[in-house]
Amino acid sequence: MRNTARWAATLGLTAAAVCGPLTGPALAAPAAPASLYAPSALVLTTGHGESAATAGPARAVTLSCAPTASGTHPAASLACAELRAADGDFEVLAAAGGGMCTKQYDPVVVTVDGVWRGQRVSYERLFSNECVKNSSGSVLFAF
Rank of each mutant, 00 (worst) to 15 (best):
R117N: 12
A79S: 07
H48W: 08
A76V: 09
A55M: 09
K133I: 07
T102P: 04
T23G: 00
A31M: 11
D89H: 13
P39W: 00
H48P: 00
V121F: 10
T23W: 08
E124G: 15
A79R: 10
A34S: 09
A81F: 09
L42E: 05
V115R: 03
G114W: 02
M1A: 14
L44Y: 05
S51R: 07
A26Q: 10
L44R: 04
R117G: 01
A15T: 13
A85Y: 01
G97Y: 01
L27F: 14
A55Y: 12
T54F: 05
P30C: 02
A38E: 09
S128M: 11
A52F: 05
P25D: 13
R6M: 11
Y37S: 13
P33E: 10
G99N: 01
N129V: 09
T4R: 12
F127P: 03
G24W: 14
L126I: 12
D89M: 06
G118P: 02
G12F: 10
L93P: 01
A75R: 13
V61I: 10
M100T: 15
R125V: 05
L63I: 10
T4K: 05
L13K: 00
L126P: 09
A53M: 06
V43D: 10
A86K: 01
P21E: 08
G47N: 10
P74K: 03
V43F: 06
T72H: 03
A85W: 01
A75F: 08
E124L: 09
Y37P: 03
D113C: 02
A96G: 13
N129D: 09
W7F: 13
T68S: 11
C19Y: 12
G114D: 03
V92F: 06
F143L: 13
